[in-house]
Design a protein around this nucleic acid. Sequence first.
DNA 1: CCGGATCCTCCTGGATACTG
DNA 2: CAGTATCCAGGAGGATCCGG
Lengths: 126, 126
Amino acid sequence: MHKPETPTSNLLDSHPYLRQTLDLVADKWIVAALYVLSHGTKRYSELQREIGDISQRMLTRTLRDLERNGLIERQVYPVIPARVEYSLTPLGQTLSQVLKSLCEWSKVNFQDVEAARNQYDGAELD
Amino acid sequence: MHKPETPTSNLLDSHPYLRQTLDLVADKWIVAALYVLSHGTKRYSELQREIGDISQRMLTRTLRDLERNGLIERQVYPVIPARVEYSLTPLGQTLSQVLKSLCEWSKVNFQDVEAARNQYDGAELD
DNA sequence: CCGGATCCTCCTGGATACTG
DNA sequence: CAGTATCCAGGAGGATCCGG
């Protein structure tokens, strides 16, 4: 009786896409930049100001990452001082739409999450 | 002429929900656990096996986190050896639906992302 | 079988200083 | 203005041991 013993017991190998897409957006600064850019084309310094507490290092890394993934476009104007503008690509726009649906879920359900948290945390000290 | 100088230049303060909801799911193990549990009730050891390469520490932390946020339910059977079962709550089910819409985006668009990556990486070594 | 406690490592990301 | 380069602290997470 040699049991096959479920050779593919790892369910996640089934669809690799969800994981990879979350890697795309599962980052504080990525989402922040996408969100700001969903309001229109922005310069580097504008992004820095409107995102708020982001370091130059992280802003640059984030923008490079988004550009590499085809979600934003980088436009350089050869003037002095330098002028660089960033904007969402069509691909980036569709993704930011999905993020908005996640945002909708939040508006509807996040109070439930907070309620669960309070109950859980409160039950600690019985 | 005292300019107000755009006091709320930080766009992200506008809607805090997206940020918080992403904190909910923007994690490798969180998504993995939600996904496995979307296929039905599972025991601790089943989760460990089906997720694959997760440490006990991380599995436990992940499950506690999900439970605290009201996304999964923990059922303990007082037998020896211990038996613990986890399942999605209704709230967790609605969230996993949204994740599936993100997954849909992937199926449609992820090839574009990879194409962009190849082009970007290829352009490096011109 | 489930999971808490500890230790230890590596990587992320902030601060700072410097260029075209 | 728009980055790059370097340094460094803190936290995330794996490995391991133990206890109910």
